[in-house]
């Protein structure tokens, strides 16, 4: 935190904390699949923002580039996860099982 503040990216760190808290709130209060997905996207976005903010504090350009590469890899995984979640959302919506409380009614 001190390193990030020294590098002038304290605002980004605070924003990342706020977005993470909002994401946790969103996941906990969600009643359908898409809202859970939105909450998880907020959580992942806050982590990538924190990674980039902390990378700015690095004096070694190689380490900062490594952090940015990790962000790109995390995005690839995140987008894959979203594609699967949307496919599941479409499949569940056709069977009328979008609400989390009704998901147990679905067959394996």
């Amino acid at each position: 935190m001190t390193i990030a503040m020294a590098s002038g990216s304290a605002v980004a760190v605070v924003a990342a904390a706020g977005i993470f808290a909002t994401g946790v709130w969103g996941v906990l209060r969600a009643r359908d699949v898409l809202r859970v997905l939105i909450g998880v996207m907020l959580l992942l976005s806050s982590v990538t923002l924190l990674t980039v903010a902390l990378a700015r504090a690095q004096t070694d350009p190689g380490l900062a580039a490594g952090a940015h590469a990790i962000v790109l890899l995390a995005w690839a995984i995140e987008v894959t996860e979203i594609a699967i979640a949307i496919a599941l959302f479409i499949a569940l919506s056709r069977r009328g099982l979008i609400e989390i409380s009704r998901m147990r009614e679905g067959k394996w």
């Binding site: 700015r56 350009p61 190689g62 580039a65 490594g66 940015h68 590469a69 790109l72 690839a76 995984i77």
Partner: peptide, 22 residues
């Protein structure tokens, strides 16, 4: 703050195996 060449090196050399898994 990060040059594109450094990023490419990190992505394809340092994290090359991770990229293949992804």
């Amino acid at each position: 703050t990060v040059a594109i060449a450094d990023l490419a090196r990190a992505l394809f050399v340092l994290y090359g195996p991770a990229l293949e898994v992804v």
